[in-house]
Structure formats: C-alpha cells, structure tokens
Amino acid sequence: MIEIEALVKRFDGFAAVDGVSLTVGRGAVLGFLGPNGAGKSTTMKMIAGFLAPTSGTARVCGIDVTADPLEAKRRIGYLPEGAPAYPDMTAGDFLEFIADVRGLKGAERRKCLADAIERVEIGPVLEQSIETLSKGFKRRVGLAQAILHDPPVLILDEPTDGLDPNQKHHVRQLIRAMAPAKAIVISTHILEEVEAICTRAAIIARGRVVADGEPLAGGGWRFGNLRAEPGRLEGVFRALTAETQA
C-alpha cells in the first residue's frame, strides 16, 4: 500500500535522502533504523506529503502523494517526530479539531473519536490542556490524532521516543493490534522494538537503504548475507552503519 521509488531529497546540494525505494503491503510493519541524520524522518515527511521530493515518487494506496496530495493525505495517519500538538488546546478539543479538518461527521465521527481515545487510553486527560500533559500522554494524544480516521496507512516517526518502559510496551501492543489491517512504517532507535513489532526492517544510512531485513523462522533476523541471533540486532546495525559512515 506504500510504494516508494527512487526517492531523493536534496537540501542545498546535500542529499538527505538519496534514492530510497521500498514497498510496504497491508499487514506489514516496516521499521526504519538508522543513525541520526540518516534520512529516516525526511523520507517519512515525503511520504506524508510535508516535503516535496526532489525526484522519485511516493504512492499511498496507488495515489501519488505529489500529484494528488489531498487524496493521499486522507489515507495517511502521520505522527511527526516529537508528536507536535497545539499546547493551548485541551486534548479533547485538539482531537475535535482534527476530526473537523478530516471532515468526520455524525455517528462516524463519534465512533472514530471514541475508538481513538479508548485505544490510546487518554480518556482521563481529555479536559487538560496539552501543555500540562506528561510526555507519555502527549505522545498518546499525537497517536490518537494519527489513528483518528482509521487510515489504511500509518507513518509514525519515533512513536515510543521518551516513553517509560510501560508506556513503550503499551504503544507496541497498540501497533501490533492495528497491524493486520494496515500498512505501517515506524522509525526508531530502539533495536529491540524492531524485533518486538516489525515484520521487516530497513537500515538507512546516508540517505540510502543499506540493508533490508526480515525475521527468520527460527528467531533472529537476516539482513542480506548477515544474520543476527535473537537480541543481537545491534551488531548487524553497527556493522552496516559504521562502514558507510567511515
């Protein structure tokens, strides 16, 4: 449901993303791994339609995000890095605003709001202004915003960053629960997260996909000819990203 072909983004001659091609189908959870500045966020911003690619195409449910941005954006739920939200608004008003912009009405709207609020468990803080919320709740409000319209495609930029272990566990459960019906891309620094929820992983360094890996049947992961035993993904990650950074 997500098809990226030879995506390139240049900033003043510097290629932040340099020819990334990927496809993600329904039921797949793709983990973007990579050092800081590798181009993970920039790639996600292009899929979500925030940045225009310098060249290449990104399609969501068959819709080119540059050619028909509004139709593509309707099918995407996007959590930007840091889960930005309007600090003066209450969590409830914020979600109502998202529902307004997305044109949700009547019974469907009520169901969407109730489902999202229940899924991320923010019922108790709906009346609080977002600036007074803890980091964990803020992130959950951001997630609620992304899943509000039950989109077929989810792009989540570091969804568990800054959460405590319990909250991380909860967000991972949530992603796993939604996975069968959606195509999901998450970026993360946490390798155990990839092992916990992803069905595929792409290691990105210097704007390129240096390895595309899948879990092995007997446990562990395989990236090309590199194998990682269960819990040993870090060695592969370092081997792949260190040589490109040399």
Partner: peptide, 12 residues
C-alpha cells in the same frame, strides 16, 4: 512548536 508539520500533513 512544530505543529506546522502536523497541519500541512492534514488534508488541507
């Protein structure tokens, strides 16, 4: 506040 990225990825 970074909300521009949110706003510009909504269908508007």
């Amino acid at each position: 506040s970074g909300t521009l990225e949110l706003l510009m990825t909504l269908p508007v």
